[in-house]
Amino acid sequence: MSIVTTDNPPESITGTPQAPPVHTLSVFVNNKAGVLMRICQVFARRGYNIDSLVVSHGRDEHFSRMTIGISGDPAGLEQIILQVTKLIDVIHCIEHTSSDSVTKELLLVKFIVAKKDRTEALQIIDHYGGKTIDLTPTSMIAMLNGDTTKIDAALTMFSQFEVIETVRTGKVVMARGELAT
């Protein structure tokens, strides 16, 4: 098991310098009730906020994969990773950076769009490589995926319409090359 330290500069969720640093952790755990509680408790007690969380079972259903985006003091992160790793139900916990991994998230966005604006909306969706998954005479739902920066940029473009709601999955991460995530 390798643990990547926080020496790498953290990404920022919004790109603004004041934003708290966000770290992406991949946690491989036993697929059992209560495991998420145990992990969340370690972060909460040390004052880290969970910004995004994706959990699903692994290829072997006895295990689950969690991708957790957290923000908080980078100085204590390495120690927190050790505390998470110490949990009996955790197989491993690895911090990933943009250079050693790929991250993606999925966005669903529902917005009001009248007939006259529909073409422009479709152009934006097409530009970001997305799809229309629901269409009514007055609204549509677009689906697109990509890294966080791309999703943020697309949302800026959609904001010219009356956005009713957005749902983001939060990011999932996978290590590049043959490394384990």
């Binding site: 209560g34 509680m37 145990r38 408790q41 139900d89």
Partner: peptide, 14 residues
């Protein structure tokens, strides 16, 4: 008691 004791045990079971 499973939820209550998570922060004060090495591990617990229900």
């Amino acid at each position: 008691i499973f939820g209550i004791t998570i922060p004060v045990v090495k591990h617990n079971y229900l």
